[in-house]
C-alpha cells in the first residue's frame, strides 16, 4: 500500500476527516507502517501509551483484563483508530489490543500526534467532538445500567 492510499484511508477515519490533505499526507509519511500476524500484541493494558494505531487492513481484538482472564470488549475494523486515549491523557493503556488476523496498521507516535493537534484546530475540534460523543454514549450506557439495577 502506498502513501497516497494510506492518505485515502486516513480520510475515511472520522477523526481525521476534517483535516486538509497535505497535513494528512504528512501525518501518514511521518507514521510507521507496521504489520502484525494474528495473535501478535500491538500493546498491553498497563503499558505506557506512546502511539496510536490506525488499522489499514485486518482486524484487531480489544481485550480487558479481568479476574477470570482477558475479556474481549470490542473489535476494530479497517479505518478505525485505536490507542488514542492513552496518548491524549498521558495515562497507561486501558486495554490490550491483539491482532485477530494479518493486520496492517499505521503507527502514529504520540509526539507527532500532539504536535499535529496543536497545529490543526480542525483536527482538535474533531477529536473533541468524537470524545464528547463517546462520553455521552458512555453516560447513556451508565444511566441504562443504573436504571436496570
Amino acid at each position: 500500500m502506498l502513501l497516497k492510499d494510506e492518505v485515502g484511508m486516513l480520510q475515511r477515519v472520522p477523526l481525521f476527516s476534517g483535516i486538509e490533505l497535505t497535513k494528512l499526507k504528512l501525518l501518514a509519511f511521518t507514521s510507521d507502517r507496521v504489520s502484525y500476524s494474528a495473535g501478535q500484541i500491538l500493546f498491553r493494558q498497563g503499558d505506557e501509551g506512546d502511539a496510536a494505531y490506525v488499522i489499514l487492513s485486518g482486524r484487531a481484538d480489544i481485550l480487558v483484563d479481568s479476574d477470570s482472564g482477558p475479556i474481549k470488549v470490542a473489535e476494530m475494523v479497517p479505518n478505525s483508530i485505536v490507542g488514542e486515549i492513552a496518548i491524549l491523557c498521558n495515562s497507561s493503556r486501558t486495554a490490550t489490543v491483539r491482532a485477530a488476523s494479518q493486520l496492517e496498521a499505521l503507527r502514529i507516535r504520540k509526539d507527532h500526534f500532539l504536535r499535529l493537534m496543536k497545529e490543526s484546530p480542525e483536527m482538535t475540534i474533531e477529536i473533541l467532538r468524537v470524545l464528547a460523543d463517546r462520553l455521552s454514549h458512555t453516560t447513556a450506557d451508565l444511566i441504562d445500567a443504573r436504571s436496570a439495577k
Partner: peptide, 16 residues
C-alpha cells in the same frame, strides 16, 4: 518539499 516546506526547521517531523 510538498510535505515539509511549510514546517519550521525545528519541527520534530524532520527526524522522519
Amino acid at each position: 518539499i510538498e510535505l515539509f516546506a511549510d514546517l519550521p526547521p525545528d519541527h520534530q517531523f524532520f527526524q522522519q
